[in-house]
Design a protein around this nucleic acid. Sequence first.
DNA 1: AACTCTGACAACCGCAGGAGG
DNA 2: GCCTCCTGCGGTTGTCAGAGT
Length: 295
Amino acid sequence: MGRAPCCDKANVKRGPWSPEEDATLKSYLEAHGTGGNWIALPKKAGLRRCGKSCRLRWLNYLRPNIKHGGFTEDEDNIICNLYNEIGSRWSVIASQLPGRTDNDVKNYWNTKLKKKRLAGKVNGANNSSSNSTMSTSNAPAFLGFTSNHPSGLPNLDAYHHGFSVSEIHTFTAAECQVIYDGATTADVHNSAYYPYTGFNHIKSNEIGVSSKVSTSSISNSSSISSSSPSLAMDEKASLLTCNRGTLDEATAMMDFGFGFPCDVVNNGIWFQERAQENSLNCGSYVSSSDLNYIC
DNA sequence: AACTCTGACAACCGCAGGAGG
DNA sequence: GCCTCCTGCGGTTGTCAGAGT
């Protein structure tokens, strides 16, 4: 026996919604809400529509604060990065874009971004291994970069550090891929190139075992590094942990080869220039699969 | 002007999973 | 634990307008 249909298809209207239907649905929802039951809603509202159709119409079109069209470059980058990271989970991607619906994002991807990406015109195109410059110009705006920053460094004004442990960001493959541009571990350990003290370099395999690096495990970075099997990751970039802040401000840093460490925080990174002034060990959430992705 | 093609967007469909009985 | 109902999601299709021939 097949599944019962959600509505009587012979007696429901299909196709585009008329302005009158929109108005009826909108006024009913504004007055009564969904009542927790979309299936029963059209009958109550006096609409000859399937409940699912009503829900879709409301969520994708009638709901307040919905934006249509006019995707910005920042939104393009976010969509591409998240698509690289999690694939076609449009609802998740849309949740990062205020006013955008999953349907909108999906349509936009299918009609524009997919082609744009194939042409290599947006972030997320697979070019991480071929670019050995130190440019940040292709990094996504939501990571704090601006393409027109005079120094090429991120726009720090929009961010702050001192995030709590619970806010430490899981640095994703897409984000790593976008901002990594080819510095080697040798570069990182070169004091002239990388003059900061108080950092511990952790290889990706240590990080991946438990997603959080314990404070004790990073107390001696050289022994950790030398005891671990060599990974391709080690040839390119290191995760750094640092000593700074207070317990509830503990955070982590990553080195992506810019020559200075980056805080890894919720939906962003912070370029920390005075980390050595502080005094607390801290951990980081970075999965090995995420890090290995860029290897 | 008529036709075809293409892109953009709206809407539908079927499935998976959660909630509740 | 099983069943039913409902919601939410992602893939797909339908519709329409504008561009091109």
